[in-house]
């Protein structure tokens, strides 16, 4: 079976309990811009990855491996993989 092309979005965020000074600074800036009611901001990273794989499952497995090995530091970060096309 020929490999198919997939577009994926990988989201990496700080784990709960890990202090996020950048998120805090952004939260403060939002407040200073009069956006009221903000009760928390956490900053993360998004990776849009195009790849070929034999199936959606195979693509997800590959992306999971990418996260474990490089895209996320699992000491402090969680990741989520989504096939978007």
């Amino acid at each position: 079976m020929a490999d198919k092309e997939f577009k994926a979005r990988v989201t990496v965020t700080l784990k709960n309990g890990v202090l996020d000074p950048q998120g805090k600074a952004i939260e403060g800036a939002l407040e200073s811009l009069d956006f009221n009611g903000v009760s928390g901001v956490r900053q993360g990273k998004v990776f849009d990855v195009n790849l070929t794989a034999s199936s959606e499952k195979a693509a997800e497995d590959t992306l999971g491996g990418m996260c474990e090995k490089l895209l996320a530091n699992t000491v402090i970060e969680d990741y989520a993989v989504e096939i978007v096309g």
Partner: peptide, 17 residues
């Protein structure tokens, strides 16, 4: 060394940014 898993923990952005 922390990224390579040779030392425990991680080094994050300075608290004062």
């Amino acid at each position: 060394l922390t990224e390579a898993g040779l030392l425990p923990g991680s080094l994050m952005r300075n608290a004062g940014l």
